[in-house]
Design a protein around this nucleic acid. Structure first.
Lengths: 144, 144
DNA sequence: TTACTTGCAAACGTTTTGCACGATT
DNA sequence: AATCGTGCAAAACGTTTGCAAGTAA
């Protein structure tokens, strides 16, 4: 998905950020990853393409991408440091516990549920997180 | 809820752990809190009752309580270090974005949804997290 | 009495900051 | 040319570990 990378770089530029080799490398990797990546994992991958890259730059680039809504943090039992492409609109995630692959799915009609919970608890519901964990099709095959 | 504290202490003892003043203090505070507490917050609260307590002991006690399924970690946008009483069976959480209060609610019947997601994505769904965020009844009133 | 638990200090891994140099616009 | 971005080193932060002394059983 070279297209996504390009879009991200355009957005960075549009928001007054400069397009540098470091940022290009980081963007290219995150934008094309189907797995959530920690800053360190991203750093290791990125250094294969741009040896001089510093870990600090990875952190600072992720900060900007998050600010622009291009990446989001993924919460998992093992930890919450990993980032993945943010999807537009409200989407929910399903994560493979074996290989770490992340897919998004639309929320179907959960609104009635939230309404009823709101009534039961007295809360005014503003947001929600729904995440599923399981084994992806590929990993199911490979284990058989 | 003195009852909960006592139950927890009993469970600790039943699992070969000793009941000490430090553990009693930590247990009493977590078991009675309606808010998720970070180790540091818990430490500060606990030291009001037991001055000599060390932060390390808070960490180690939380570790044991988590192992025994008495507390669970709470994931929030601001961070994922806070702990709260774990409920039996699978429950979902609703959190007040204003005061941090946490309530649990039963999952209604979400299984059909998970089944349909499983079919669409090819995943074998094993677990799920559902969390709602909003403003609790009390905070709604206080803002009016 | 024995083994577990404690708190301190130190170590650790991750994330952030200060700074002079380098690169983008 | 001006400003923004970089990488290094050091600092800061939360968490874990080693250990000798203290305490529960």
């Amino acid at each position: 998905m070279i297209e996504t990378s390009a879009t991200w770089l355009t957005k960075l530029k549009a928001n007054g950020y400069r397009v540098t080799k470091s940022r290009q490398t980081v963007v290219e990797i995150v934008a094309n990853s189907k797995h959530a990546l920690t800053p360190l994992e991203l750093y290791d991958l990125a250094r294969k393409k741009h040896t001089g890259l510093g870990l600090v730059t990875v952190y600072r680039t992720l900060e900007k991408l998050e600010e622009l809504g291009l990446v989001q943090r993924v919460h998992q039992p093992q930890g919450c440091q990993a980032f993945i492409t943010a999807f537009n609109g409200h989407q929910h995630m399903i994560l493979c516990s074996n290989c770490g692959k992340v897919e998004f799915f639309a929320g179907d009609n959960l609104d009635p549920l939230f309404l009823s919970i709101g009534e039961k608890t007295g809360f005014r519901v503003l947001d929600h997180w729904l995440q599923l964990f399981g084994i992806c099709a590929e990993c199911q095959e490979n284990k058989a």
